[in-house]
């Protein structure tokens, strides 16, 4: 990255407490525009909670964060205009068709009717869903649903897209195709913030952050982390860090 770095995510000492439980404990990090930033951690390490705060779905207990230049406390609605989000749970409308979902989400993000038509057609073509475009989304196989879900999440060209375990339960070939879509979006300048359990996917990221018990255990480019932990793969790095975790599976 030679060009001037533009920060799209900045957090400082961000924390989230639920009663006595500290789900996210003082995390600070920065993400540059166009970067693919991987967020790793065991179940219950606080990944989803952290991501929900960054999306404006959950108000932090303390600390600061700026997303696309907006404050997570006061400007959640402005943040929402500038991000895309794809949750663990499949969240397009299963009882609407592919076209209807595209039309709905395009519409509520303020795309013009001609934009919706054009982008919708391009999207369907790219995913090879021409013959399925009038079928209910609920009838599609999971892999296609996930690809569609991602494409809909970036239909309004957001600055950042948040992906929460997007490839859970998807076959390796579809995962590969899914990552092609991610790279394509990153090339267009969309910043990707992705959580995952798959270590091979971690290798695809520009930079990764490994969460352990709500704190940042390690952060950096995959090669840098492998060197630092003298490991041959990301798997080993992850085990090394996760072994020290106190929290059990949540």
């Amino acid at each position: 990255m030679i060009n001037m770095k533009e920060l799209v995510i900045e957090t400082r000492n961000l924390s989230k407490r639920f009663g006595d439980f500290i789900a996210v404990d003082n995390i600070s990090f920065e993400v540059n525009k166009g970067e693919i930033f991987g967020f790793l951690g065991a179940n219950g390490a606080g990944k989803t909670t952290a991501m929900r705060m960054l999306c404006g779905l959950s108000i932090p207990s303390s600390g600061d964060a700026m997303i696309a230049g907006f404050d997570v406390y006061k400007e959640t609605e402005s943040i929402k205009k500038n991000i895309g989000y794809m949750s663990q749970k499949f969240s397009l409308y299963e009882n609407l068709t592919v076209e209807e979902n595209i039309q709905f989400f395009g519409g509520i993000y303020g795309l013009s009717n001609s934009d919706i038509k054009e982008k919708g057609r391009a999207l369907i073509q790219k995913l090879g869903l021409e013959s399925e475009s009038r079928k209910l989304v609920g009838s599609l196989p999971l892999g296609w649903k996930q690809k569609l879900s991602f494409s809909v999440a970036v239909i309004h060209e957001p600055k950042i897209v948040f992906l929460d375990e997007p490839t859970g339960g998807v076959d390796p070939l579809t995962r590969r195709q899914f990552w092609d879509l991610i790279y394509e979006a990153a090339d267009r300048g969309v910043t990707i913030f992705v959580t995952t359990h798959y270590m091979d996917e971690a290798e695809y990221c520009n930079r990764i952050c490994i969460m352990v018990d709500g704190k940042i255990g390690a952060m950096g480019a995959p090669d840098f982390l492998k060197k630092k932990f003298r490991a041959s793969s990301m798997d080993e790095v992850f085990y090394e860090l996760a072994r020290g975790a106190q929290r059990k599976d949540a």
Binding site: Y85, K89, F90, S91, Y93, Y109
Partner: peptide
Amino acid sequence: EMGTIEQINVTPI
């Protein structure tokens, strides 16, 4: 229940 409300909540609706 379906989780679609979360998708709505991250939009500027």
